[in-house]
Design a protein around this nucleic acid. Sequence first.
DNA 1: TGCAAATCTTAGCCTACACTAAGTTTTGGA
DNA 2: TCCAAAACTTAGTGTAGGCTAAGATTTGCA
Lengths: 148, 148
Amino acid sequence: MPTRRPDPARCLPSAEAQASRFARQREADRAATAEDYVELIADLIREEKEARAVVIARRMGVSQATVTATVARLQRDGLVETQPYRGLFLTEAGQQMAAAARARHELLVRFLIALGLDAETAEQDAEGLEHHVSDKALAVFGKFLEGR
Amino acid sequence: MPTRRPDPARCLPSAEAQASRFARQREADRAATAEDYVELIADLIREEKEARAVVIARRMGVSQATVTATVARLQRDGLVETQPYRGLFLTEAGQQMAAAARARHELLVRFLIALGLDAETAEQDAEGLEHHVSDKALAVFGKFLEGR
DNA sequence: TGCAAATCTTAGCCTACACTAAGTTTTGGA
DNA sequence: TCCAAAACTTAGTGTAGGCTAAGATTTGCA
C-alpha cells in the first residue's frame, strides 16, 4: 500500500514564502509599464531620432491621453524628461533601464528561437516574459545559448 | 565601409504589429490575477479540503478585504462560487482554468530546473512567467524536456 | 502669412486591486 | 450556553492605467 504522504511536488509552500513570491510578482507588474515605455522611447530615439507621444500612442495601442498620463508618472519617477510639444528624452536612469530591458528582451528572443520557436511568437512571448524573468534565469538561458 | 542599412534585429516592428502585441500583453495581465487566485483555491481544496478567504489573504500577502473584493470579481466572471462564511468553490470553468494554470506552472518549473536553475528561483520565476508564455512556447519547452 | 491639421493637454469618467477601520456573523471552548 | 475570538463584509480611500471629449498649441503648406 502506498504511503499517505502527498507527492512533494504537490505540497503547498509555506504561507510566508508564497506571500513574498506574490509580493515580488506585484512589484514586477508595477515596473512593467515603465519598462515598456522606456524601451519604446529608446527604440524610437535610435531609429527615428525622436520619440513623439503620438507615435508612442500608436505603437502601444492606447490613446494620446493615456500616454500623457503615463509619461507624467515616468517623469515623476525620474525616467523621462519632457518639454511641452517636444519629443521625449530619457534621463540617465531611463537610459539604463532601457538598455537593461533591451538586453533581456534580445537574449530572450534568441533563446526562444534557439529552442525552435518561430520569430513572431518569440517576439510576442519575450515582450511578456522579459518583465518576469530573473537574472538567474537569464544567466542559465545565456549559458544554454553558448553551450549549444 | 559597412552598409548604412540598420541591423535588421534593430528595426522596429510595424506600429500595428507592436500595438497588437501590447494589447495581447494587457489582456494577459488582466487574466493573471484570476489565474493566481483560482490556482491557489484549487491547491487549497486539494491539500486542505477547503479554501478559506483568510488563508488566501495570508498566502497572497493581501488583506482580507482585498480577497473579498477579488473573489466577488471571480464570482461575477463565473469562476468561483461562494456562500457567506463558507469556503470557496470553483465552477467548472474555474476548475478548467486551475488545471491549465497548474499544468503550465509545473512544466515551466521542470523546464527551468532542467536548464540548471535552482528550485526556489524556478518556482518564483514560474509564478510570473506562466501568465505570459504562449502555448507554442510551452510546446517547445516540453519537446526540450523530452529530447534531453 | 495665415489657417487647417496635427499634436498635445486637460477634465471627467471607469475598473482593477491595493489599504485601514469598523462593522457583522460564526464558531469553539470555558 | 454564551461570549470572545476568528472569519468575513462593508465603507471609504488611493494609485495605476485605461477611455472620450474638448480645449490649447504648434507646424506645415497653400
